[in-house]
């Protein structure tokens, strides 16, 4: 069954219509890339799916259940993990402890004020860190990790909650080109192996075309194309947006809100 189904999503900030009637869906084991120029509305879409923002209109359905406007905490409990565009981790804890806290929260083990936390979920945390390539950094404080490593750490924390949907907002920013493809291949493997649905944004087109099953293209808040990578590569509208067609503002691209 469809993991995430977004329909007619709309959000404006003051007079700016940031997202205008966007619809898409993600199936289990599928990776959908949301691409588009800066300011296209990608992060706003993400924040509405993740619960950080309440949509003005439209619906967000997770496995059939409407989660529009539900708090991030509840959305997490319903099986959505996410990484942020600007990483958010716990600076005063080691990488391993970061993942442990996430795993303990997932297992509802937080409200135990008397148990020592040192060994809780430790093997699971170490396995996840190993999986994302952070084993060597496990005992370093998150506050001193390099930016690319923080992105990996966020991935491990999101995976610790065993989500069915993973939202990744620019997961490879701050990484070297080779690392980017390797990390997203890793996500690709997990998605296929566990049947995890992944929605991600990315500026590196090698990554986008290398790992995603389908691509949705946003421009000025509206969805202008979506489909398999080859089709997107050939789409004249997409080419116009990425290569430039002389229009810099004002008129909105013609076809919006096409379903995928």
């Amino acid at each position: 069954m469809t993991v995430l189904a977004v329909e007619g999503l709309r959000k404006s900030f003051g007079g700016v219509l940031a997202v205008d009637g966007v619809s898409f869906a993600v199936e289990p084991g599928e990776m959908l890339a949301l691409i588009g120029p800066n300011g296209a509305g990608k992060t706003t879409c993400f924040n509405m799916v993740g619960g950080q923002l309440r949509p003005d209109a439209g619906s967000v359905r997770l496995a059939g259940r409407d989660i529009g406007g539900v708090s991030p905490r509840r959305i997490c409990r319903l099986g959505v993990g996410r990484t942020f565009q600007v990483t958010a981790t716990f600076a005063s804890m080691t990488a391993r402890e970061n993942v442990q806290v996430a795993a303990v929260a997932h297992r509802r083990g937080t409200w135990r004020p008397w148990r020592s936390a040192a060994d809780l979920e430790r093997p699971a945390a170490e396995a996840l860190l190993d999986q994302v390539g952070l084993a060597a950094q496990a005992e370093r404080a998150a506050g001193v990790l390099a930016y690319g490593d923080l992105k990996r750490l966020e991935l491990a924390m999101a995976l610790a909650a065993e989500p069915r949907l993973l939202l990744m907002d620019e997961p490879t920013a701050g990484m070297a080109a080779g690392e980017r493809v390797a990390l997203m291949r890793l996500v690709r493997g997990i998605a296929t192996g566990r049947g995890l649905a992944v929605l991600f944004t990315e500026h590196d087109m090698d990554v986008v075309f290398g790992v995603s099953d389908r691509i949705a293209v946003l421009a000025r808040g509206a969805l202008i194309a979506s489909g398999a990578p080859e089709a997107i590569r050939a789409d004249p509208q997409v080419r116009a947006i990425y290569l430039g067609d002389g229009r810099t503002g004002g008129e909105r691209p013609a076809s919006g809100g096409r379903d995928c």
């Binding site: 997490c76 942020f84 716990f90 005063s92 804890m93 806290v101 303990v104 936390a117 924390m157 909650a161």
Partner: peptide
Amino acid sequence: YALRASRDSPLRAEAIGL
């Protein structure tokens, strides 16, 4: 740990279900 997590990054803490 959850208390420190809430101090370090409320955004992340809520996103992992705290």
